[in-house]
Amino acid sequence: TGRLPNSKAGDGKPRLLLMGQRRSGKSSISSVVFHKLPPSETLYLETTTRIKKESMHSFMDFQVWDFPGHLDYFDPAFDVDNIFEEIGALIWVIDAQDEYLEAIMRLNTTILNLQHSYPNINVEVFVHKVDGLSEDYKGDTFRDIIQRVQDELSDHGYENAPVSFYQTSIYDHSIFEAFSKVIQKLIPQLPTLEALLNSLCSTCHIEKAYLFDIMSKIYIATDTSPTDIGSYEICSDYIDVVIDVSEIYGWDRPSENGDADLQETGNNDAESLITMERKGNNYLYLREINKYLALICLMGDDSPSEKKAVIDYNVGVFQAALKQVFPRAERDIVVQSPS
């Protein structure tokens, strides 16, 4: 593959730090989101004892650092600068099914400590494991946590701290949706992407369009029409269908080895379409954009399902525009050509 050789650490790759109390679910989150571990198997994960650094190679490279719960992040023995210097976001995980006062206290200490040297860090609080809670209790807990964090910060004279809150669980899509939002903040090209998607949606009567990172199923952008988690879930499940079927039938066929280049007129970018039986129900469209990204669209009632050529054309335009926005594809070429 045409990956950049890993240059020395801290070459501008945004870093996501996962912090929080022991057993709050940090390793589970990172395994489920980035390694596709089935949620039920996180029960067998061992306690993290050292900082676990992982590099993710996707449309953009980033690192995820999973911290052991008991660490004192501001222990003098600890190289604070080295940790926080390149940071993209600090994700603080709070177990909503457990006592959370101490977690909040530590979170606040951390925020206040960081405020001096690194005031621009996004702090993202995941109120986690909400799957086990009743709707009422879930809402109350969430509000209570937000309140306590904000009160304490303003007691220390820190108003409007850049802290966001999410309710998450590894047993549903919420953790992916939260990660999507965290990552979107780190993409400088986001406004351009949104504009491109908006224009695609209006020319093709698309109801909702997402640009997905195929591997992680995080969406890195969507058009600016209102989002509901339902559409995200449909699209994310749809990627699974396409990936699963592609795995089953995309195996290395014996006859292909010899004359792989003579393959017929197949699409090189995978493409998929689902039409629903009942009139009036939306249909789904997927198009692989490059190695990392796929465009997934929920088509509206009046979108031209017969006029697929229109869609193909416009998606082609979108794809070309995206190449300009994202250096990634170019980088691949640069690396490949000298070899």
């Binding site: 396409v242 079927v245 592609s246 995309g250 197949g266 998929s272």
Partner: peptide, 11 residues
């Protein structure tokens, strides 16, 4: 139910 599902790839 879907009426049809298509997947096209290079393989």
């Amino acid at each position: 139910n879907f009426a049809e599902m298509q997947i096209k790839t290079g393989r």
